[in-house]
């Protein structure tokens, strides 16, 4: 218990020690990170099931699942069978293990990368066996996928977020992960982005999605949404 409390204290101090200035929304240069799986996508491995941003799924659940993240989907969801190995998207140090304040249970893991950004791996099946400040390398297995409904038959997937060091902001992983996102989308989500008919072209592509500030007001509580906030549309 004492060791755990000490680890939390050290971790918290590390976060508080950083400059409160919000980092740029996108890193300079090429995307620094890789995809979180070693295998290629496909019907027997993994595929994207929800993009980052103003998705239709997020809109429907904007006040419930995603209320703390301004109603948007503040990560990317990768559908994968329970037990699929997840790899670190970049070099870094373990920042937190099982941090319930960040959601995405039953288990999660946060890595502070050398460029100052943080990756969060959510809905892991098992508690990752890392202590805070352990170094990990890009491509190293850091956990296995699980199911937020705890059944492994409902919706097993990995929820991956990119945050700034303060953990108050989440960014679009498309800008940070070196991947062929347009090809990945070919076997991807069945629904697209939610529209606000008062500005129908806003937030309609993979790249045109806003950053999320946790705890701030909803960005997608549209007065004229399309599709409507009812099922079947």
């Amino acid at each position: 218990m004492i060791k755990r409390a000490a680890a939390i204290l050290v971790s918290t101090l590390a976060i508080l020690a950083v400059t409160p200035t919000v980092l740029a929304q996108t890193p300079p240069g090429d995307p620094p990170f890789r995809l979180p799986f070693a295998e290629n996508p496909g019907p027997s491995t993994w595929y994207i099931v929800q993009h980052y941003g103003s998705t239709r799924t997020a809109y429907v659940r904007r006040t419930v699942w995603y209320g703390s993240g301004q109603g948007l989907h503040f990560g990317v969801d990768f559908s994968a069978r329970c037990g699929t190995e997840v790899v670190a998207i970049g070099d870094g140090s373990i920042l937190k293990v099982d941090a319930p304040e960040h959601g995405a249970g039953p288990h999660n893991l946060l890595i502070l990368h050398d460029n100052g950004f943080v990756s969060l791996y959510g809905h892991l099946r098992d508690r990752p066996r890392f202590a805070p400040f352990t170094r990990v390398e890009q491509g190293q297995v850091i956990g296995v996928t699980g199911d937020p409904d705890l059944t492994c038959s409902s919706r097993p997937h990995l929820h991956l977020e990119i945050r700034d060091r303060s953990l108050f902001y989440a960014y679009n992983p498309v800008d940070f992960i070196d991947a062929d996102w347009d090809s990945l989308a070919l076997f991807g989500p069945s629904s697209g982005f939610q529209r606000d008919l008062s500005d129908p072209g806003r937030w309609q592509t993979l790249h045109d999605q806003p950053a999320v500030q946790f705890g701030a007001p909803l960005l997608n509580d549209f007065r004229t949404p399309w599709p409507p906030d009812r099922s079947g549309w």
Binding site: P43, S44, W46
Partner: peptide, 16 residues
């Protein structure tokens, strides 16, 4: 249709 990610791990029918 696509058969994908059967929970029981049986991949023999997975595909398009």
């Amino acid at each position: 249709y696509a058969i994908a990610l059967n929970p029981d791990g049986d991949t023999s029918q997975e595909g398009f």
